[in-house]
Nucleic acid binder design. Structure first.
Lengths: 341, 341
DNA sequence: GTGAAAGCGCTAACAG
DNA sequence: CTGTTAGCGCTTTCAC
């Protein structure tokens, strides 16, 4: 803490007014005449006074800060989320307390405790696991304002998120319309407890009366570029005749694209590739990626509206509501009807 | 702030001990017998007690939080910095207060004030402009622990950073050794007040007795992929015979690479491309990027060591020291000796 | 071993 | 209009 910062008391002594008057004057109370206020403001400036927010928080019982917990800010979508949240929160007068869970539930719990101890007014969280959220439910049950950035319809916790199932459904349906039949998927849902994209994929297939072929789904090790490369290699080696693949992140798609380009597989003619999240590096890839967009602005604005709304509730919190934002497809170069064989 | 959280007083009343005893017991004082401590801990658990850090901060005069101000977390290096800082700070028991200046000096100032008001124990900052840092110098002069993540040798402010001049020098020298003579540079130093990379470029040229040709430097609009594409287009249209280009970020390099691939310019044969920062998307580009690495771990560790060191100083701060980390080259596919003409 | 009292810097009654 | 008093939840000093 800044050593020896000026306090109200210091400027009170300097001006001869009481601490109370100084406080009032500095906060612009109409009860203080201009003359006095000016005198006090001047003294405050000279002392380089800055109100001590921690003292203020203690009495006001609000810190004007909101905790943001992400799994891993390295994921481009989460980077953008962090950026957008911070920006919007700061515009609304809130400070962002930032933490990363590193996909470790224990760390996630610890960070929640830390925010609670510091009396963050609310928490925005992207949980490690979409299913194990008892601790979050528990928080909310104690009237602590939390909103999740992933949606679990009946979790009992507020959430704002992209409708990933709808996104996957749209993307796969689009590929089917283009004439693809053997559509692969890089699916890593097992670990993260989020089957939404897989569900969308399955629904689209069944709606088109295409039988699900398990050999078309390959699980990437991680949601990164290298794993996308490896997954594509696995898919090609399986030789199951896939003409298209849908990837749960642009990073994976980029890795898949890289494999294809380097192995003489034409994209999109021989392999159509659909990404997810519509990131900068996907848009500007050597062959620009078709992708399911992620309306980060919409999600963060809604989520922030909701936490702040909950913060301002007196008494018990209202029932949780989860809001899903419907994504759009962004069709670029990496997808097209399959080549005739 | 969490409505109606349990306080020491509540658990004092519940157990019949005084607030003081409870406080001591919970903090593990040896003066409290085990029997008492157990009793108190139990009551605390039942009440779901969590110490109020804001009250604690007020009396202890430290918040165990450090402010991190970045220009724009969307830049992959800064993303990684944010991640690394948060992780390491949390391991050391500090919380990260996060803010983005959006390259706006006024916002930067505002965020610094905000952190100071909240009594962050120290600040880590990546300033918008490397030259205009009077406000930061001023902070330090008042004994506020700040360390910058960019280096200005005689700014009077502590700093830890990569030696960008050395990085550029090494990269350009490497290209020269490979036989390149007409080496272009995408340089945006004018706006951001950081000429280090350009200096390294110029030094390498002059050391090899290659005359500087201004038509070989093209200023990208922004440090992003699209601007790299555009810059490459400009460079090619100028038709000045460049056989290699050095880019101040991997994003720009990726854009340049994209232009080349899409216009039949072979990389690296017809155009060698050197990036900066060694990012994931550069490493796994269709043609993997040679790049100047950015040892984020080293920089953040040193920077954090330094702020925490300054925080623990009693009385006046010691003279500022700036530490530069020397980068290494990572040679991949995007660079090679020029094709014979 | 445990408790009472004071104080961190601020705001919120309530007087005058 | 301005000052006095109390109190936010905690730690610390000093008694008992």
């Amino acid at each position: 803490m800044a050593k020896s910062a000026a306090r109200l008391k210091d400027i009170a002594e300097k001006t001869g007014f009481s601490v109370n008057t100084v406080s009032l004057a500095l906060r612009g109370s109409s009860r203080i005449p201009d003359q006095t206020r000016r005198q006090i403001s001047e003294a405050a400036d000279q002392l380089n006074y800055l109100p001590n927010q921690v003292a203020k928080s203690l009495v006001l019982k609000e810190t004007k800060s909101i905790g943001l917990i992400l799994t891993d800010i390295t994921n481009p979508v989460l980077t953008a989320v962090a950026q957008a949240v911070e920006l919007e929160l700061s515009e609304r007068g809130y400070l962002t307390l930032f933490a990363t869970s590193n996909n470790d539930p224990a760390l996630e719990r610890k960070m929640i405790e830390s925010f609670r101890a510091r009396r963050a007014d609310g928490i925005l969280i992207f949980p490690c696991n979409h299913r194990e959220i008892d601790h979050i439910r528990h928080l909310r049950a104690r009237n602590y304002p939390v909103v999740m950035l992933v949606g679990d319809p009946d979790s009992g916790v507020d959430a704002v998120c992209m409708d990933e199932k709808a996104g996957a459904f749209k993307a796969v349906s689009h590929l089917i319309e283009q004439g693809h039949q053997k559509i692969a998927m890089f699916d890593g849902s097992a670990e993260r407890g989020n089957r939404d994209k897989l569900d969308g994929y399955l629904t689209a297939l069944s709606q088109a009366n295409i039988a699900f072929d398990p050999s078309l789904v390959v699980p990437p090790a991680l949601p990164d570029v290298r794993s996308g490369y490896d997954a594509m290699e696995t898919l090609i080696r399986r030789d199951v005749g896939a003409s298209a693949v849908i990837c749960p992140t642009d990073s994976l798609a980029l890795g898949g694209l890289r494999y294809c380009v380097r192995h003489g597989i034409d994209v999109p003619e021989d392999m159509a590739i659909f990404g997810f999240d519509d990131t900068e590096f996907g848009e500007h890839a050597v062959i620009s990626l078709s992708s399911v967009n992620y309306d980060i602005g919409a999600v963060t604005t809604l989520a922030i509206d909701r936490v702040i709304g909950l913060i301002n509730v007196e008494g018990d919190l209202p029932p949780a509501v989860v809001k899903q934002v419907e994504p759009d497809l962004v069709i670029r170069e990496s997808t097209a009807p399959p080549a005739r064989r």
